[in-house]
Design a protein around this nucleic acid. Structure first.
Lengths: 213, 213
DNA sequence: CCTTTTCTGATACGAACGTATCATGATGCG
DNA sequence: CGCATCATGATACGTTCGTATCAGAAAAGG
């Protein structure tokens, strides 16, 4: 038997190359040959590890979801005390394209997302719908908890508000990716809304309490 | 000279065919041949009226923007008395995919939008950025006017809030297009937010004041 | 040592794309 | 009445895509 290389590492290397292309040149530029070149391997190797292109896309999407999840929990963890507000703030800012990494992730994610409602897309049911739903119910739970703690007024509907916050963040992300505004401006808008929800008087972010334009 | 047909009508017929494809099978399925078949003309005719595919896309985008604009003003007009709140409500609900026409428009629009930050896209500067900006400043003006009228509390920042509302609506639209929820659910979420902004006590929509899940 | 299995490379194939070319009715003007 | 010109049709070309095929190198096992 031959050199016995780590298959999973190889697959990951190729999948990451696809994500890199998706976040720079767009998913429609992620052809088999481009991915192979980006990963520094031959086209045959890509075919060897992924029999078909759909398998490659599916694997790359899984890698992307994993990275997104890791980023969300890292963002929450970085905020220190795990309060409901920190979870909400950390979750939303993690998926807002503000720094280089989040721009990469959201760009790639948007590519997959639009691939879903174009093609008949059997991959729609796999990740596309379940991932935002999880995020949304997580947010709803935290908002309800914040209500119990008196940080949020009781007349807001947690599921409705959670959905609104997530949709707001996604919409802001799209505007950043589309070049309408930069990440800092999007963050200001999000913070403004969060401040209105969590009526503690202080701004959500630690570094700056003013949100003037 | 031959039959002397109306060129503009022909171009429109072909452009609409592209939009129809974009909103059903996706923009990447809108090939020259598909557009020709959808419009019921020959491929040569499409080439005759649009020398290159980019010209066709540009023209179709212009048609789409025009239809969107018309829909927004029609939606505002249908609300009767032109109050600030009606303008805001009419604008946002017009671009939310709730009925068949708005689904068509938003689907097509999303296709163009994602085409922009994939390709180097010279068409990004033409419509992509200016259209949302116009909507946003319109909303900001109306929110400020509502503040003057006492319908909105004075501590909200009109530009920031306008941006948030538009981003929220876009995000909700994406979730509807992605199949995460239906148009009615998205409308409930939007109404919930508008009710919180315009503290008149009544729901924004005329038909139902409850927003329970 | 040599077989057998695992991995990698070069190249070919059919389809679909955007675009270009050749050819041909139809019509209004001189 | 013809002929130049606008409008349309049929088809070809070169490229790129996903995928398939043919084949060679490298290392464990007998």
């Amino acid at each position: 038997m031959p050199k016995r290389v780590d298959h999973e590492q190889r697959r990951r290397q190729i999948g990451e190359a696809l994500l890199r292309i998706a976040s720079t040149r767009g998913l429609q530029s992620a052809t088999m040959r481009e991915v192979a070149a980006e990963a520094g391997v031959s086209l045959r190797l890509v075919q060897y590890y992924f029999h078909t292109k759909e398998q490659l896309l599916l694997a790359a999407l899984a890698y992307l979801a994993q990275q997104l999840t890791e980023r969300v929990s890292a963002s929450i963890r970085a905020l220190g005390p795990i309060t409901s507000r920190a979870v909400v703030y950390g979750t939303l800012t993690a998926i807002l394209p503000t720094d280089e990494e989040s721009v990469r992730l959201t760009r790639a994610y948007t590519g997959f997302y639009t691939l879903v409602f174009s093609s008949e897309a059997e991959m729609a049911t796999r990740h596309g719908a379940t991932y935002p739903d999880k995020l949304e119910s997580l947010l709803a739970t935290q908002i309800a908890a914040a209500q119990e703690a008196g940080e949020v007024v009781t007349d807001v509907d947690p599921p409705l508000t959670a959905a609104a916050l997530l949709a707001l963040t996604n919409g802001l992300g799209s505007s950043v990716l589309g070049g309408q505004r930069d990440g800092a401006a999007a963050l200001r808008i999000l913070n403004d809304q969060l401040d209105r929800l969590f009526h503690t008087g202080e701004s959500s972010t630690a570094k700056d309490s003013s949100h003037g334009s």
